[in-house]
């Protein structure tokens, strides 16, 4: 095995090539991101606020326009830039699921309604089979009795668990978690992290942005340290979280473990 992390991976699941992104006002948020991720990996992205972590996930999900670069999923290029326009292939994007920091359940639909909307409307699945699948999944994650509840009747932790199940309904080949526990009360964090660990146990590839270093250490197979729109460190969790090579990362990890721990 070569000592370069990249070439150790055959056949990338996700490949990000030189992605640049800036918002209309202000400094660029992504300044040349390159990343290859293999099918078995669970990548945790850490770093200071405003360093581009969330934007990176949103770009992978195809929620944002980018200035330059390309993203390929399982060999199919789905985020490309021609001229000034970002083109996104919605078919490829369907293989990716995402859960957000804010509660994003559809407030006018109950839990089952939230779960079956996309399967019925996007994949043309029948209401009956989608509902049956929804109930099975809810049961597996201990949410069976909440099937008819509306989002306003759920706790924050339950909302996020339902949001995860909603994404799973579409059988994603890659899951993105964008600070999914940041808005939660501390006592509700564990139940959500438990669900993500459960998915990790099934070898579902995922990219996780989190501020919870203990969770990061537990779940990651690989850790990226992101700051100022660049990936500054990239390696196994023991290394990036334990003995970072750069001053920036060392400083950050030290401070977070001290304050957060």
């Amino acid at each position: 095995m070569s000592n370069s992390f990249k070439s150790a991976r055959p056949d990338p699941l996700l490949r990000i090539d030189a992605v640049y992104k800036s918002y209309a006002k202000g400094a660029p948020v992504l300044r040349g991101i390159d990343l290859e991720m293999a099918a078995g990996e669970r990548v945790v992205v850490i770093g200071p606020s405003g360093g581009g972590k969330s934007t990176l996930l949103r770009v992978v999900m195809g929620l944002e326009q980018i200035d330059d670069g390309a993203i390929t999923f399982a060999g199919a290029s789905y985020v490309t830039v021609t001229g000034r326009r970002t083109r996104i292939d919605a078919r490829v994007r369907r293989s990716i699921g995402m859960v957000f920091q804010n509660y994003t359940l559809f407030l006018h639909l109950n839990v089952v309604g939230n779960l079956i909307l996309a399967p019925c409307k996007v994949n043309g699945e029948s209401r009956k089979t989608a509902t049956a699948r929804a109930l099975t999944l809810l049961d597996r994650f201990g949410l069976a009795e909440k099937a008819d509840a509306y989002p306003s009747q759920l706790s924050g932790g339950q909302k996020q668990r339902v949001a995860i199940v909603r994404a799973l309904m579409l059988d994603p080949a890659l899951m993105l978690f964008d600070e999914v526990t940041s808005a939660l009360d501390p006592e509700l964090v564990a139940e959500v992290e438990q669900v993500i660990l459960q998915l990790a146990g099934q070898n579902l590839p995922m990219i996780i942005v989190t501020h919870d270093m203990w969770f990061a250490r537990r779940i990651a197979s690989r850790v990226l340290f992101c700051a100022e729109g660049r990936i500054i460190e990239d390696g196994p969790p023991e290394q990036v979280l334990g003995s970072p090579r750069t001053e920036r990362a060392r400083d950050f990890v030290h401070r977070v473990f001290h304050i957060g721990g």
Binding site: G62, R93, I96, Y103, K121, V122, A163
Partner: peptide
């Protein structure tokens, strides 16, 4: 209606029309 409802719709692969008809207009 917060932008996160749009984000969630896009992440679920809903088309523009489905998003309008089943997520935005009812709310």
């Amino acid at each position: 209606i917060g932008s996160e409802q749009r984000d969630a719709s896009v992440a679920l692969g809903l088309s523009r029309w489905t998003r309008m008809r089943y997520v935005i207009l009812p709310q």
